[in-house]
Simulated scan of single mutants.
Amino acid sequence: MSFLKDKVVAITGGSDGIGKALVDACIAAGAKVATCARNYDKLYTLQLQHANVMLHTITCDVSKEADCQRFIESTIKTFGGIDILINNAGISMRALFNDADIEVIKKVMDVNFFGSVYCTKYALPSILERKGTIVGVSSIAGYRGLPGRAAYSASKFALQGWLEAIRTELLHSGVHVMWVCPGFTASNIRNAALNESGEAQGESPLDEASLMSAEECSREILKAIENRKRTLVLTFNGKRTIFLNKLFPALTDKLVYKFFFKNNELSK
């Protein structure tokens, strides 16, 4: 990852999971890293872990435009600019649409979609100047709607459509725009996923130990950034789901239902 040497990398949601793995990997590669998260204690622990380097951290709720502006502007003030912006912060949900409060849907959209929009808007002048990179961490749910995650799927479809639009707008600017779809990756996102009332469900319906590690995922993301890939889809199951959904959508409906439901009740 020598291409990261002395690059300024801004990563949202860097206190857990894929975001933290990205922070660790970028610092190890010699990058100047800025990250944000809502949890001050986790950010403080992260700073202690990297006490020998200049790591810029700030508490931030990416669903709030003013917080995103403060994160981006403080990063530029600290490091002089931004070369790579990784819009990683995200939140999931686990509730049937019929049962979910509208506020849950708004919250997921505000974090997953508008959080990326806000940060990118304020970082774009610097990224244009440096001919840098904009990354959105999406999901297989951005290609295939998943039951129990209606708002999550909507937010990822929106993220990918928006990124594709701005990639076309910036086609001749030298700026690289891409999105990555990790598939099921071991992280805290399912424990923090919102239930129908907007509260963290506090458990994962999947076997986290069997999933791709956040560290492996971060390595693949950084390699894709280095190679300026258009998109990155990880895991065999993720690639298979997209392929089947494109060619055999009705069959995929049945397979997805079978995976997520047991006795006609949402089980995953």
Rank of each mutant, 00 (worst) to 15 (best):
F113Y: 10
F113M: 02
F114L: 11
F114W: 15
V117K: 00
Y118D: 00
T120E: 06
T120D: 02
K121M: 06
K121P: 00
L124Q: 02
L124Y: 04
S126C: 05
S126R: 00
S126I: 04
L128K: 14
E129W: 07
E129A: 15
R130L: 13
K131T: 10
G132R: 01
I134W: 13
V135L: 10
V135A: 09
V135G: 00
S139F: 04
I140Y: 06
A141W: 11
G142D: 06
P147Y: 05
G148H: 08
A150M: 02
S153E: 02
A154D: 09
A154R: 05
S155L: 01
S155K: 06
K156Q: 08
L159A: 10
G161R: 04
L163N: 04
L163E: 05
L163W: 10
L163G: 03
I166S: 03
R167D: 06
R167L: 09
R167Q: 14
R167S: 14
E169T: 09
L170R: 08
L171S: 15
G174I: 02
V175D: 03
V177M: 09
M178L: 03
V180I: 14
C181N: 13
G183L: 08
F184M: 08
I189D: 00
N191Y: 15
A192P: 00
N195K: 10
N195M: 06
E196W: 06
S197H: 14
A200T: 10
Q201I: 15
P205Q: 12
L206M: 15
E208D: 14
A209V: 09
E215I: 11
E215C: 08
E215L: 06
K223R: 12
E226F: 06
N227R: 14
N227K: 15
R228W: 00
R228M: 03
L232V: 04
V233D: 12
N237K: 13
G238M: 05
G238Y: 02
